[in-house]
Design a protein around this nucleic acid. Structure first.
Lengths: 211, 211
DNA sequence: TTATGTGAAAAGGTTCACAGCC
DNA sequence: GGCTGTGAACCTTTTCACATAA
């Protein structure tokens, strides 16, 4: 089944909210309540949630516990993924320490860098290897996802090294540059400075958008 | 004039590319070349660039120098903005040190945190104040933009503190939570874990998307 | 009465195709 | 011939409106 990207993005947020509601012992929630808390229209929430079957009760709302399980099932990968992080700078370390990256669905198992001071060391319990050894290490450690926190000129080389033996399936690119990827490789880019520039643009133009 | 958000996002990338081309002494570039380098269709590039007037030469392409000035004019804010960063943790420090945040259009002039060890210190040359003093300090220092690198439970309080005296116009939220903002306040959220979750979802579904 | 589920309509963006100019 | 500019077509996503069920 094909799911639109904006829908997936909202599903992740629904799960996070439902998880909190569940811990707070909330039993029932309506599409309007969900929408108000996350900044979406109630009709949008209903469309998203009904996409995978009727899960709510008309006249009542959604059972939090049941809906949480349902959304989690939709989002959960069938197995755990091994992740490699390239570029152990400040941003890389921040991500390593990031709570969001504590999950049972993926695990950062190896780090890569070019600095002699970092190669051979461990950071937050993960070993750091040299970028030149990436093709072999990725294969050896069964790594299929790369997180890139490298300078802009290095991003493309990292993607190339990751696809050399063909096992990398996804890349999360935090460097301020676009990368060219072979078909089949999924690349998501989070460009921090672009976000700030967009904000400045709409500030300048006195817009009223809120995302 | 109303400009679509995806267009602004691409404009920022065009400028970055043109800046590099200009430094490399490239004089002329076509919409196809731009598109190939950034992963957009040539027709998309032309639509974006023609949106603000005819700037290219038919049969020739775009003059890099002229186009760069043009795109910069569209994006440049009319004045410099003062920015406050809340939450001097690893991510906050990574952003402080981020090259993308070196700009003549904005400057991080103050930091805020709750930790006694950080309040009163300076980080990368910026003074750190207590979060409780935000309303006064923001007004005093003429800060209109906030960057939030705080834990999820603190994000909403920061927005509330920033809007208490009404001067905050934009927020860039890096915390993994949604915030409710009064109308007129522009909030952009960069949710690192959501991006990874999206990637995992499409990996699971063996899609062929590339963004 | 209340809140979901869902076709249909509207809005928002992208791509096409070709006229127009170099 | 080559490449831009752009209306029209197309596709995607959101919102509406109301039938339906608790």
């Amino acid at each position: 089944m094909k799911v639109a990207e904006p829908t997936v993005e909202r599903l992740v947020q629904y799960r996070r909210l439902l998880d909190r509601m569940d811990r707070d012992k909330v039993q029932v929630i309506s599409s309007k309540e969900i929408g108000d808390m996350l900044g979406f229209k109630a009709s949008q929430v209903r469309k998203d949630l009904s996409y995978f079957g009727e899960i709510g009760k008309r006249g009542v709302g959604y059972n939090v516990d049941r809906l949480l399980k349902h959304v989690s099932d939709i989002l959960s990968p069938p197995r755990k993924w091994n992740v490699g992080l390239v570029g152990v700078g400040r941003l890389g370390e921040a991500l390593l320490d990031h709570k969001a990256f504590l999950s049972d669905k993926y695990e950062i198992v190896a780090l890569f860098d070019v600095s002699d001071e970092k190669v051979g060391e461990t950071f937050f319990g993960r070993p750091c290897f040299h970028v030149d050894d990436m093709p072999e290490k990725l294969e050896e450690m069964d790594i299929e996802i790369l997180i890139l926190t490298v300078p802009k000129d290095a991003a493309q080389r990292c993607v190339d090294a990751g696809t050399e033996k063909g096992q990398i399936k996804g890349v999360l690119n935090f460097s301020p540059s676009s990368v060219v990827a072979p078909p089949g490789l999924i690349v998501y880019s989070v460009d921090i400075s672009v976000e700030l520039e967009k904000l400045l643009f709409y500030l300048k133009h006195e817009g009223t958008e809120s995302i």
